[in-house]
């Protein structure tokens, strides 16, 4: 412990080394030990809780959906099953794609509305002839998925592969590659 007058007689003034008070020493050691113990218990639990954010996301496998010869210029609705692994629960939910074929190739659109996630259909509203329309808040889209109202992005599309024997395979979703 420093004596009260020691520093005043020190020619180097305040730069001189000051000894730590008993109170400071105790608060540092006790504080440090407590922080270590609390951290040791809390960090694993916090990392455990945020794990879903940090887990690797995997692309879904390509799934066989329909023969190319069945596709038309008019979008048609096709359902297919994908393997979905949700934590400990594996299931095969049914997905929907609206697929059409034109000079640019095969376009498989996802029917999830880009406004707030309801489901669109093709040609389901007489006011919007030959468009995709969403019943929730009235978003509508062109045949290529270009947004015309309400929504702020075009409909997503599925990755498409065509096999040698003429089948369409659909993979994971990506943003629309034809329009913005």
């Amino acid at each position: 412990m420093s004596k009260p007058h020691e520093n005043e007689h020190n020619p180097h003034g305040p730069t001189a080394r000051k000894e730590m008070s008993r109170r400071q020493f105790l608060s540092y050691t006790l504080g440090g030990a407590s922080a270590f113990m609390i951290g040791g218990a809390a960090l694993p639990m916090v990392r455990f809780a945020v794990d879903p954010l940090l887990q690797k996301k995997t692309d879904s496998d390509y799934v066989k959906v329909v023969e190319v010869s069945k596709l038309t210029a008019e979008p048609q609705e096709f359902n297919f099953e994908v393997l979905q692994v949700d934590g400990w629960y594996e299931s095969k939910p049914t997905m929907t794609a609206w697929i059409c074929k034109d000079e640019k190739g095969i376009l498989a659109l996802s029917p999830t509305c880009k406004h707030l996630g309801c489901t669109v259909s093709w040609n389901n509203n007489e006011k919007f002839k030959d468009q995709y329309f969403c019943p929730c808040h009235g978003a509508h889209y062109t045949k290529e998925g270009k947004q015309l109202a309400v929504a702020r992005a075009p409909l997503d599309e599925y990755k498409v592969k065509v096999s040698e024997d003429g089948f369409v395979y659909l993979g994971s979703k990506q943003s629309n590659t034809r329009v913005q």
Binding site: P44, M45, R47, F48, A49, D51, G87, W88, Y89
Partner: peptide, 30 residues
């Protein structure tokens, strides 16, 4: 924290515990 992953259901309870213990970071610790 365990309750974030655990489900009290006879089909899924075992798998949810197995999942949280083996697949979730620090699951074995928690």
């Amino acid at each position: 924290f365990l309750t974030m992953y655990y489900v009290p259901d006879i089909i899924n309870a075992y798998y949810s515990v197995e999942y949280l213990q083996t697949k979730v970071a620090f699951g074995q610790i928690v």
